[in-house]
Protein backbone atom coordinates (compact mmCIF):
# COMPACT_ATOMS: atom_id res chain seq x y z
CA UNK A 1 0.00 0.00 0.00
CA UNK A 2 1.30 3.44 -0.85
CA UNK A 3 1.11 6.46 1.39
CA UNK A 4 -1.55 9.08 0.93
CA UNK A 5 -0.59 12.73 0.37
CA UNK A 6 -3.72 13.80 2.26
CA UNK A 7 -2.21 12.53 5.50
CA UNK A 8 1.32 13.74 4.73
CA UNK A 9 1.40 16.55 7.27
CA UNK A 10 0.08 14.55 10.19
CA UNK A 11 2.25 11.55 9.28
CA UNK A 12 5.49 13.51 9.05
CA UNK A 13 5.11 16.30 11.57
CA UNK A 14 6.26 14.17 14.53
CA UNK A 15 9.72 13.96 12.94
CA UNK A 16 10.14 17.68 12.34
CA UNK A 17 12.08 18.38 15.54
CA UNK A 18 14.65 15.65 14.99
CA UNK A 19 15.02 16.50 11.30
CA UNK A 20 15.66 20.10 12.27
CA UNK A 21 18.16 19.14 14.96
CA UNK A 22 20.15 17.06 12.50
CA UNK A 23 19.85 19.78 9.86
CA UNK A 24 21.42 22.33 12.21
CA UNK A 25 24.42 20.08 12.77
CA UNK A 26 24.73 19.27 9.08
CA UNK A 27 24.49 22.81 7.78
CA UNK A 28 26.14 24.48 10.75
CA UNK A 29 23.53 27.20 11.22
CA UNK A 30 19.83 27.67 11.87
CA UNK A 31 18.88 29.57 8.74
CA UNK A 32 20.27 26.96 6.39
CA UNK A 33 18.83 24.24 8.60
CA UNK A 34 15.34 25.67 8.25
CA UNK A 35 15.76 25.79 4.45
CA UNK A 36 17.07 22.26 4.45
CA UNK A 37 14.12 20.92 6.44
CA UNK A 38 11.70 22.80 4.22
CA UNK A 39 13.34 21.32 1.14
CA UNK A 40 13.22 17.88 2.75
CA UNK A 41 9.48 18.17 3.35
CA UNK A 42 8.87 19.42 -0.18
CA UNK A 43 10.80 16.53 -1.70
CA UNK A 44 9.12 14.07 0.63
CA UNK A 45 5.67 15.39 -0.26
CA UNK A 46 6.34 15.09 -3.98
CA UNK A 47 7.43 11.48 -3.72
CA UNK A 48 5.14 10.46 -0.88
CA UNK A 49 3.17 8.22 -3.22
CA UNK A 50 6.35 6.18 -3.60
CA UNK A 51 6.72 5.67 0.12
CA UNK A 52 5.46 2.30 1.16
CA UNK A 53 3.06 2.80 4.06
CA UNK A 54 4.01 0.84 7.13
CA UNK A 55 7.74 0.92 6.45
CA UNK A 56 10.20 3.13 8.28
CA UNK A 57 8.96 6.68 7.66
CA UNK A 58 11.50 8.29 9.97
CA UNK A 59 14.41 6.62 8.14
CA UNK A 60 12.86 7.54 4.78
CA UNK A 61 12.68 11.21 5.78
CA UNK A 62 16.27 11.19 7.02
CA UNK A 63 17.35 9.67 3.74
CA UNK A 64 15.77 12.60 1.92
CA UNK A 65 17.34 15.05 4.37
CA UNK A 66 20.87 13.68 3.99
CA UNK A 67 20.51 13.51 0.21
CA UNK A 68 19.27 17.10 0.10
CA UNK A 69 22.23 18.12 2.24
CA UNK A 70 24.70 16.27 0.01
CA UNK A 71 23.21 17.87 -3.12
CA UNK A 72 23.46 21.33 -1.63
CA UNK A 73 27.05 20.98 -0.74
CA UNK A 74 28.12 18.99 -3.73
CA UNK A 75 31.34 20.97 -3.75
CA UNK A 76 32.30 19.18 -0.59
CA UNK A 77 33.41 15.65 -1.06
CA UNK A 78 30.81 13.02 -0.44
CA UNK A 79 33.46 10.49 0.34
CA UNK A 80 35.81 11.24 3.16
CA UNK A 81 39.48 11.37 2.49
CA UNK A 82 40.99 8.34 4.04
CA UNK A 83 44.23 10.00 5.01
CA UNK A 84 45.29 10.87 8.54
CA UNK A 85 42.30 9.20 10.16
CA UNK A 86 44.05 6.00 11.09
CA UNK A 87 46.54 7.91 13.19
CA UNK A 88 44.19 8.12 16.13
CA UNK A 89 44.67 5.30 18.55
CA UNK A 90 41.71 3.10 19.46
CA UNK A 91 40.03 4.04 22.76
CA UNK A 92 41.93 7.31 22.57
CA UNK A 93 40.17 9.23 25.34
CA UNK A 94 39.72 6.27 27.63
CA UNK A 95 43.43 5.61 27.70
CA UNK A 96 44.14 9.22 28.55
CA UNK A 97 41.53 10.32 31.03
CA UNK A 98 39.88 7.31 32.59
CA UNK A 99 42.40 6.25 35.20
CA UNK A 100 42.07 8.97 37.78
CA UNK A 101 38.51 9.04 39.08
CA UNK A 102 37.16 5.83 37.73
CA UNK A 103 35.55 4.54 40.85
CA UNK A 104 33.55 7.50 42.02
CA UNK A 105 32.32 9.07 38.84
CA UNK A 106 30.16 8.18 35.85
CA UNK A 107 31.83 8.32 32.47
CA UNK A 108 29.53 11.17 31.43
CA UNK A 109 30.38 13.31 34.45
CA UNK A 110 34.05 12.63 34.07
CA UNK A 111 34.03 13.50 30.36
CA UNK A 112 32.23 16.78 31.01
CA UNK A 113 35.06 17.84 33.32
CA UNK A 114 37.36 17.91 30.34
CA UNK A 115 35.25 19.69 27.76
CA UNK A 116 31.98 21.57 27.36
CA UNK A 117 28.85 20.83 25.35
CA UNK A 118 29.78 23.70 23.04
CA UNK A 119 33.09 21.96 22.36
CA UNK A 120 31.28 18.70 21.60
CA UNK A 121 29.21 20.58 19.03
CA UNK A 122 32.19 22.24 17.43
CA UNK A 123 34.11 18.94 17.29
CA UNK A 124 31.14 17.25 15.60
CA UNK A 125 30.67 20.12 13.17
CA UNK A 126 34.34 19.91 12.23
CA UNK A 127 34.05 16.27 11.13
CA UNK A 128 34.07 15.56 7.39
CA UNK A 129 30.49 15.26 6.10
CA UNK A 130 30.41 11.50 5.66
CA UNK A 131 31.59 10.87 9.23
CA UNK A 132 29.37 13.58 10.67
CA UNK A 133 26.26 12.13 9.08
CA UNK A 134 27.01 8.67 10.45
CA UNK A 135 27.74 9.95 13.96
CA UNK A 136 24.64 12.16 14.06
CA UNK A 137 22.38 9.37 12.86
CA UNK A 138 23.82 6.87 15.35
CA UNK A 139 24.61 8.86 18.48
CA UNK A 140 22.04 11.65 18.30
CA UNK A 141 19.13 10.03 16.48
CA UNK A 142 19.70 6.50 17.70
CA UNK A 143 19.31 4.78 14.33
CA UNK A 144 20.60 1.21 14.07
CA UNK A 145 23.59 0.49 11.83
CA UNK A 146 21.25 -1.21 9.38
CA UNK A 147 18.96 1.82 9.23
CA UNK A 148 21.95 4.12 8.72
CA UNK A 149 23.11 1.88 5.88
CA UNK A 150 19.73 2.35 4.22
CA UNK A 151 19.60 6.09 4.86
CA UNK A 152 23.07 6.74 3.47
CA UNK A 153 22.83 4.00 0.85
CA UNK A 154 26.11 2.38 1.85
CA UNK A 155 26.92 -1.12 3.19
CA UNK A 156 26.71 -1.77 6.95
CA UNK A 157 30.47 -2.39 7.05
CA UNK A 158 31.05 1.10 5.68
CA UNK A 159 28.70 2.57 8.27
CA UNK A 160 30.69 0.90 11.00
CA UNK A 161 34.05 2.06 9.72
CA UNK A 162 32.80 5.64 9.30
CA UNK A 163 31.41 5.61 12.82
CA UNK A 164 34.60 4.11 14.18
CA UNK A 165 36.79 6.70 12.51
CA UNK A 166 34.41 9.57 13.13
CA UNK A 167 34.18 8.82 16.83
CA UNK A 168 37.94 8.51 17.14
CA UNK A 169 38.42 11.85 15.41
CA UNK A 170 35.97 13.30 17.92
CA UNK A 171 37.84 11.78 20.82
CA UNK A 172 41.07 13.35 19.59
CA UNK A 173 39.44 16.74 19.00
CA UNK A 174 37.84 16.71 22.45
CA UNK A 175 41.09 15.75 24.11
CA UNK A 176 42.82 18.60 22.27
CA UNK A 177 40.28 21.04 23.74
CA UNK A 178 41.21 19.82 27.22
CA UNK A 179 44.91 20.14 26.41
CA UNK A 180 44.45 23.68 25.11
CA UNK A 181 42.81 24.65 28.37
CA UNK A 182 45.63 23.08 30.32
CA UNK A 183 43.49 20.47 32.05
CA UNK A 184 45.01 17.49 30.28
CA UNK A 185 48.66 16.86 29.47
CA UNK A 186 49.57 17.09 25.81
CA UNK A 187 49.82 13.89 23.88
CA UNK A 188 53.60 13.44 24.09
CA UNK A 189 53.50 13.58 27.86
CA UNK A 190 50.40 11.43 28.12
CA UNK A 191 51.96 8.76 26.02
CA UNK A 192 55.44 8.71 27.45
CA UNK A 193 55.63 4.98 27.54
CA UNK A 194 54.51 4.67 23.93
CA UNK A 195 57.11 7.18 22.74
CA UNK A 196 59.75 5.27 24.65
CA UNK A 197 58.71 2.09 22.87
CA UNK A 198 58.71 3.77 19.49
CA UNK A 199 62.15 5.29 19.87
CA UNK A 200 63.82 2.14 21.12
Amino acid sequence: MVADQATFVEDTEPFMASLYSTAVRLSGNRTDAEDLVQETYLRAFRSYDKFEAGTNLRAWLFRILTNAHINRYRARQRRPEETDMDDVEDLYLYRRIRDEARISMSAEDQLMQYFSEAEVVSAVEALPDAYRMAVLLADVEGFSYKEIAEILEIPVGTVMSRLHRGRKMLEKALYDFAVSRGIAPDDDTALDEVSADASS
Partner: peptide, 14 residues
Protein backbone atom coordinates in the same frame (compact mmCIF):
# COMPACT_ATOMS: atom_id res chain seq x y z
CA UNK B 1 29.01 7.47 28.14
CA UNK B 2 30.96 9.20 25.40
CA UNK B 3 28.24 8.41 22.88
CA UNK B 4 25.65 9.79 25.28
CA UNK B 5 27.67 12.97 25.74
CA UNK B 6 28.00 13.38 21.97
CA UNK B 7 24.31 12.67 21.47
CA UNK B 8 22.97 15.05 24.07
CA UNK B 9 25.48 17.77 23.24
CA UNK B 10 24.41 17.83 19.61
CA UNK B 11 20.67 17.96 20.09
CA UNK B 12 19.09 21.21 18.96
CA UNK B 13 15.64 22.40 19.97
CA UNK B 14 13.15 23.32 17.28
Amino acid sequence: GLRTVIGSGCREEL
